[in-house]
Design a protein around this nucleic acid. Structure first.
Lengths: 182, 182
DNA sequence: ACTTAAAGTTTCGATTCGAAACCAGTTGCG
DNA sequence: CGCAACTGGTTTCGAATCGAAACTTTAAGT
């Protein structure tokens, strides 16, 4: 059997609700973006984002609590506090960019001016993409939801070598899948 | 000049706030996930997600309004209404997966069972990735924010051929960049 | 005609958001 | 030292949002 339905209720097994617990709150992504942009201080976030003081305080605390930002007081000026992205925080970049690119594609008519480029050749980056284990770019319709035991088991019965990726798996559209090959 | 700071306030130029206007609200991503999973009806979403009736109604309306879902009444049973993803909705898959993979990596200890695989070989997909114009996978530290006019202008003064991607650009960390090469 | 199903709407209390005021350590300066 | 200004908060309180439960409406089913 191929396309299964995911158990949506079993939140413990799914990364999405967990991710949304922090990042689903208003301003979290905007604060993250500001961090990626090199802002580090409370008053910087405050004036650049136009967020309310108490909410910013609350969000920063929550982001720190979840290990996305780390909070250090500046040694040179002990009034100041530095908020910096952790590795866990940096790992949200694909999600943030994907969301942003989507918004850019569908909701913004202007051509943006500071452009995100590859440091190597200074050419604009491409779209954030879903990759197969071998690096091919996958579209929404190239995906299939499979029972763990059936990983690598092709429709024709042959079995691919599950050498590569192992730990990462996900959600998906199976209505269209069912039609296509179920 | 290389790493610039993005104008965070000018929301019209940035796709992120636009994207968050819809997807930033509670439940939007969960509804999207359910849609990807093949749910199409109000009562399905209701029982699978455990969301309040009025909120679900509100969110579905907003998702439809923003062109992420389309709403059709079933011809066979005119009590029923079908909510289906549009192309615009499908295009949110990378953002949703990226978020989910992040949550999976950092917040969920269980091995998930229905695994998302490549339809071709039925092997688990890889992580959602930021790609260079030529397909190389880029990490958070391979990015640079460049003025539009300077696209393709390398640090050493040589110019890369900006043949490929043109319309897609983005945000980023420039504090670390400044240190590295500014 | 009566019952049930699907998809909402209404109502109302609980939570969250947001603007503004207030507060507490530092620091800079005369 | 004494005092103003700066930084990063907390408090307060009205407005908006969320959520559970009851109610409404249209369409099948029998």
């Amino acid at each position: 059997m191929g396309g299964m339905r995911e158990p949506l209720r079993d939140l413990v097994y799914c990364g999405l609700p967990q991710a949304l617990e922090v990042m689903g709150e208003r301003w979290s992504f905007m604060i993250l973006r500001a961090s990626f942009n090199g802002l580090h201080h409370f008053e910087e976030f405050l004036s650049e984002l136009g967020i309310a003081r108490n909410i910013l305080s609350n969000r920063l605390a929550k982001l720190v609590e979840h290990g996305i930002l780390k909070r250090d007081s500046c040694p040179d000026d002990r009034r100041k506090v530095e908020y910096r992205l952790t590795e866990k925080g940096f790992d949200l970049l694909p999600a943030m960019l994907a969301l942003r690119q989507w918004g850019q594609k569908y909701c913004v008519e202007f051509v943006e001016n500071p452009v995100l480029v590859d440091e190597r050749d200074r050419l604009p980056i491409g779209p954030v993409s879903i990759l197969a284990h071998d690096g091919r770019i996958l579209g929404p319709h190239d995906l299939w939801l499979s029972a763990r035991e059936d990983v690598g088991l092709r429709a024709d019965g042959s079995r691919a070598d599950p050498a590569g990726s192992l730990a990462r798996g996900d959600v998906v559209d199976l209505a269209s899948k069912k039609a296509v090959s179920g």
